[in-house]
Design a protein around this nucleic acid. Structure first.
Lengths: 253, 253
DNA sequence: CGGGAGGTTGACAATCGTCAATCAGAGTGG
DNA sequence: CCACTCTGATTGACGATTGTCAACCTCCCG
């Protein structure tokens, strides 16, 4: 792990720029300022915690490769996954602003993260309004997804929730350029799917089986899922991509 | 409804300033800039929609008095309330940034809102970094509450969820200066409580009755609830106020 | 006094959770 | 190459939290 200045040489910061510029709000000078950030690259193991609830944090980080989750653990010890983080997502801006984390962030798979000192991000946001705006939009997108999940957990049945999760994941993977067609890796165990949907592993298993029998999905290996019929799966999942605020419509196209 | 410039005369914008300055990030010039905003005051009826999902929006608004909710309606027609808005909360920054709403905002009670043209807020955020930061923190707080609700709906049982909601509401009311002691108005019907907790009205009724029998709450009228035993109610609700990011601890103090 | 919205209650149904056993696959060491 | 082991997937039987349906009550308001 080495401290590096001017990231244009290795491309780690390019991902940050691409991600923040999703809505086209950055000017060239903004990108330049981002490239001047001091950062460290860290390889993280599967299951490793990046952020722990109620802990202070000195760094703001970006997920460069691999998958991570945000989750909370309630008093009874049960866990709820509240977000899935993909390549290019900001991991803990929350810490940078509040100083203490209100949830955990844990790697799902092995991966790499880039950490930036908290102060640098804060200074940059004050100095470059476009960057602040881009970050705000990222956070707003995040909360939009949170609301959609909440509506699902509160008001949709198990089959609908799982179908919805699969549709969302596939579409986000596609938007991030991590999947091309109908098949994508699903880096989650059934227990993790259960924690994301507010169900139990056993019931997730049964529901996946049912979706397979209905020919909505096709399962080759346990960790990879092919959407066999996007149209019907998105209907089953009550999935309407508006809340993702991305231009594309159908990942089959 | 009249367009007003320089709000210092009637105090509507002071609420915005107080609310944004909760974390003390504004300088005097920032407050001054906020006071120069063009705005309109509008009295809204109970049940009136302020924002509708998938509609475009021209204004960004602030809740000045009364209560409102954010909610989504899923395919089956069932509704999930995802946030409760109190005096001083920003209603639809989301629209101002994305252009289309990803959820509904509806008044719970009669109240007043201040609407500001979308462009003015956006310009202000680009010109005054402190204001952008204050808004970002407001949004981050909002998402922290969303995550806590999600953990509750997904992983806590009915009694815990309702106790938690009551604790949170009481504490937010206190923080906003809208409640002083243990008693506070609860501007929600049991059906609305059900939509907020992911339960049904009938079960909410039974659970409230149980909480009353356990002497955790005391119900004088259906729309007002007194927390009879904060200590035990917060234990029952698995309530830990860290996620609210407010300094205070116990609303009884 | 009448109408309506919302609160309350009982009986019953069902989605989903729990428990526990078995199975399948990946990695490891001999 | 083959036990051995561990984690996660799968399946069955059963249980319970919560939902549904329907009736009745209560209060507010015109």
């Amino acid at each position: 792990m080495a401290t590096i200045r001017n990231g244009s040489v290795d491309g780690f910061l390019d991902l940050l720029i691409t991600s923040l510029n999703r809505w086209g709000v950055l000017a060239d000078e903004d990108s330049g300022a981002l490239l001047d950030l001091t950062y460290k690259v860290r390889t993280v193991r599967a299951q490793e915690y990046i952020v722990r609830e109620s802990y202070p944090a000195q760094y703001c980080s970006l997920l460069v490769s691999g998958f991570a989750i945000r989750h909370k653990i309630v008093g009874s010890g049960r866990r709820q996954i509240v977000s899935i983080l993909l390549q290019g997502d900001l991991i803990d801006l929350h810490n940078s602003m509040f100083g203490t984390a209100d949830h955990n962030v844990q790697m799902l798979t092995r991966g790499k993260i880039v950490t930036i000192p908290r102060g640098e991000i804060r200074k940059l946001m004050l100095k470059r309004p476009n960057i602040a705006k881009a970050i705000l939009m990222q956070i707003l997108l995040d909360s939009s997804i949170l609301r959609e999940w909440m509506a699902g957990i509160g008001r949709r049945d198990a089959r609908t929730r799982i179908a919805h999760l699969l549709c969302e994941f596939a579409m986000r993977m596609k938007a991030a350029g991590l999947a091309t067609g109908m098949e994508c890796d699903l880096p989650m165990s059934q227990e993790q799917l259960a924690d994301a949907t507010g169900l139990t592993p056993v019931y997730v298993n049964r529901t996946l089986k049912q979706l397979g029998e209905e020919r909505l999905i096709h399962r080759t290996s346990p960790r990879s899922i092919t959407i066999a019929d996007w149209q019907r799966l998105s209907e089953a999942g009550d999935f309407n991509s508006g809340y993702l605020h991305i231009p594309a419509g159908d990942p089959s196209g």
